[in-house]
Design a binder for these strands. Structure first.
Lengths: 235, 235
DNA sequence: TAGATTGTTAATCGATTAACAATC
DNA sequence: TAGATTGTTAATCGATTAACAATC
């Protein structure tokens, strides 16, 4: 008996997963405008990627287009929704109701995409009980009960940096396996837990890097060329 | 005379640039604790990356370590700051003072990293003039004057999706070349302008994808294994 | 059939990683 | 000198892209 080949890798590349929401948004806009069919060129254009990448991405999900024609907007929309898991609603808890947590609780973009902010938690006694976005802020002590009661699958962490690791540890303890971290801190989670982070200062720092390079570039280029020129002249 | 070799590519890979703020934050924490020297293993650990990657990243900046010893914390901190462009302060404008813009204006993490929120702008007449984070909200009409007056280099866009493109067009017109976009919309900018985006819903959708896969995985794996098993049995 | 457009192949590019020679 | 740790090399991996055969 021959050894069987290793199990097919299966699964969509991470870079593709990160773009699926983009395509979905573009398709939703097209559907609202009553567009029935779209080509990869057009959909790529409205999604801000090139069409080769779009087709490659979609090919990981299946063959949902028609050669010579394009993609049926609503059909593709449904297929991507299903792939991402948006055919169901997800309950989300936000931990840390400061400036940012407050804004996130009130952010309209979540509900329209199938994410229901189901609970707000904070460690500060003076914040507990206050009403934010129509919800009463609960103490973090009640985390376990709240997660179970509301069937919460995803947690958003918007605490100060120093509290982030402890909060994430607690979240993992009570069974949360998907965390979106806004606290500017390195957080370790056990394997099997997916942690993504949004780091506001880091984003600005990356921009600053490019901005600085831009300002210096005229000079730097001249210097570089000068060296090359010197070499060339020397022969 | 021989042709000179093409100019050295020079410049730090984008993936490295995105991690420099992480290292900087770890170094700042070490400096505050009075640590003078750190090895790549230790710094990698506190930064949440592996040490090979850290050393490779740092090697793009120069040879700032000492073999057998490690890196001098404050020296490396300074070198990275210089590379990112944090030896100077940057003035930032926020356009769109809704929930999110409001929270960003009050976000403490910016100032401590050399970013000064210098102006807030909004298109809604009823928001103009209100005070947020110690600043008076200005009308977007005044953009050009404000950008010049405050020497603003970086803009944060926190408008509704439908306004984002027009706002970015205006920003580019008045000479802004670095934009951080929070609006859930595809925005096109001319070459030479750096646009980064933070998409809150997309982040949740990526988590939802993994969460869904996790739930389905026990079943899927069994099915997959069943197929392999069937093949194996058939010989 | 002629024209259009997908799905896939293969080349290329950039990022990650392990390993180790250089060197303190 | 012996031990430690950097900086770099080279292998590997994953993502991007152009090109085109398949097919509506």
């Amino acid at each position: 008996m021959k050894l069987v080949s290793p199990p097919v890798p299966r699964g969509v590349p991470e870079a593709t997963v990160a773009r699926l929401p983009l395509y979905l948004r573009a398709l939703t806009a097209l559907a609202e405008r009553g567009v029935a069919t779209v080509s990869s060129d057009e959909l790529a254009e409205t999604s801000g990627v090139n069409s080769a990448k779009l087709r490659k991405d979609l090919s990981y999900l299946g063959s949902y287009g028609t050669r010579g024609v394009g993609y049926e907007v609503e059909f593709l929309q449904h297929q991507i929704s299903r792939e991402i898991g948006l055919t169901q609603d997800w309950s989300v808890a936000i931990v840390g109701i400061g400036n940012l947590g407050h804004a996130l609780a009130n952010y309209g973009g979540f509900a329209s995409r199938g994410f229901r902010i189901a609970a707000l938690l904070d460690a500060e006694p003076e914040r507990v009980g206050t009403e934010v976005a129509g919800l009463h802020v609960r103490p973090v002590d009640e985390l376990e009960r709240i997660v179970t009661e509301h069937n919460i699958a995803i947690a958003i962490v918007a605490t100060p940096a120093h509290a982030a690791q402890a909060v994430c540890d607690r979240l993992v303890e009570v069974g949360i396996t998907s965390i979106l971290n806004f606290a500017p801190a390195v957080v370790q989670v056990p394997e099997g837990v997916v942690l993504r982070k949004v780091d506001l200062s880091t984003e600005l720092q990356i921009l600053a890097y490019h901005e600085q390079r831009r300002n210096g570039s005229a000079l730097a280029l001249t210097a570089e060329q000068a060296v090359e020129l010197a070499k060339a002249v020397r022969g």
